[in-house]
Amino acid sequence: MMDDAASRDFVSLEHVSRRFSTGTPWTDRLLTRFGRTPPPRTVYAVSDVSLTIKRGEALGLVGESGCGKSTLGRILCGILPPSEGQATIAGEPVVVDGHKVSRRVQMVFQNPFASLNPRLTIGDAIAEGPLAHGLVTPAQARDYVQGWIERVGLPADVVQRYPHQFSGGQRQRVAIARALAMQPDVLVCDEPVASLDVSIQAQILNLFLQLREELNLTVLFISHDLGVVRHICDRVAVMYLGRIVEEADTAAIYNAPAHPYTRALLDSIPRLEPDGSEAQFKAIAGELPSPLRPPPGCAFHERCPLAFDICNTQVPELTVIDPSHDRRVACHALRDK
């Protein structure tokens, strides 16, 4: 077994940022020459995020569309190299010189209709990675693939078939088998059930829980479905406009949300009242600001009921406010209490 410190920082994202920019076109250079400020062309999808996941833990990443949670997942998985900072697993970097070098982290994508190559049979798709990395010999590949197909609950005769012959739920099982066949320690799940029917969602989620237990997987579970996250995850991190605003144990987040955004997010879940009265939910006022022109100071201050003067100018830092629940919050109003 690993010592406690290494196990605690098993997955680590250190000051990770990801910029997307289109470069400087000549029209902008011309504008600058004439003393005008060209429109901003750099978007920070993720800015200065630090996050650790313990070995075997499932961390839920929630937030509105466009808040950067998928980008963060792709950085951890090595699909997008970070502009700044780095992702490590057990101390080893995932990406070196812009190329992914680790096979210890694999990803399950949102849309199983797009994440499988339509021209590869299920068997070839699952076997390709392990063969390329020498995890199995070509002679063993058949049995190896068969083993994973059974493990994800697919019938044994699917090996020779193509993705278009399967339903969404079955395809997602294939995608899970393909990711797990690489024998990863860490699994990044990017909204893996968002595109499935509700009845199928439960099956896939149960499969996740079961496999996670069996394989001692560390999971980053990205979702906008707060109910699903509560069901699956040990800890939850809430993202807003590229930054983490609150992170705590699942129970602590759901029972006593601290950051005003987390509170608003939880309040916005439609709820049926037990006494049969009207369903009530509060929508969050306003919209997610454009990441092209993020508001100065705390990005949430325009929509925040607690905002005061300092919120307009200073970006709040993520600080521990509640050690018993391992809770970190980025909010001026809460820190000053």
Partner: peptide, 17 residues
């Protein structure tokens, strides 16, 4: 830009493959 290409790259597989 389709996800199956991202999936292949994140395995990781060589660029040629």
């Amino acid at each position: 830009s389709k996800e199956y290409v991202e999936a292949a790259r994140s395995t990781p597989l060589s660029s040629w493959r």
